[in-house]
Amino acid sequence: MFLEVENLSYTYMPETAFAKTAISDVSFCAEKGEFIGLIGHSGSGKSTLIQHLNGLLKPTGGSVVIDGENLNDKNVKLKNIRFKVGLVFQYPEAQLFEETVYKDIAFGPSNMGLSKEETDFRVHEAAALVGIKEELLSKSPFELSGGQKRRVAIAGVVAMKPEILILDEPTAGLDPRGRNSILKRIGELHKTTGMTVILVSHSMEDIANNVNRILVMNKGKLVMDGSREEIFSHVDYLNEIGLDVPQVTTVVNKLIKRGVKIPENIFTVEKACEEIKKYVESGGIKC
């Protein structure tokens, strides 16, 4: 196993009046090359959980093992772990600080101690991957639009070529085109590099369109872990914990209830179109 999380618990400000257990007893594993979605209602502990995966937070209980290295171990160099596990924060544009976009993307790679040529190569590569045009590289990051800033921030992590890429709501607050293009880029990145990707999102559509495995958090606990099909078949339970299935799945389920003969487990609009078309052409519906 590349990533093992075992009985992980974390309490913010323990032993004070503000003590707040954000996650408790979370366990899961991940292989190389998986594309995992992490969902859960606001405050369910998603961000807290992923901040443990590169050692930013020290667990109050349990352990995280990356590639055989236990992060609780004092001898493990956390800095190196952070190059292996790239973490893009929620609203990452808040972390931009350099004079130019180029320099900001180069911050990670230069912290790794890479040569100038290698850094240069990676900056251009990462910028291209997230869809930042060359001419923007010499601009100040503060002159960019929100969506462009977001891309720059993601490029800053991608440029470190991590083995696991974790994105905390990368599309929050973006317009539909921005969302789709960022997600498409991430999907391509996953396919071409074989990177493990963990995507945190509140959009069931984004999750359904991209991932093949879903982790569900509720009140700090990991309550479900399974394939897309498995998770989205539990409509009632998801509703109960403040989540939902993709809208198109709701539509399809209603159609099925009305006697339309199309298969269950449809999570994307494309697939739904295809199946409904098939059904209509087979003469199931009289127009």
Binding site: Q51, N54, L56, K79, R82, F83, G86, L87, F89, P92, A94, Q95, F107, G108, N111, M112, G156, V157, M160
Partner: peptide, 13 residues
């Protein structure tokens, strides 16, 4: 705290 964490995630020391 948040900004520190974000920069640490990029290898800042």
């Amino acid at each position: 705290d948040k900004i520190m964490m974000a920069q640490k995630a990029r290898g800042a020391d």
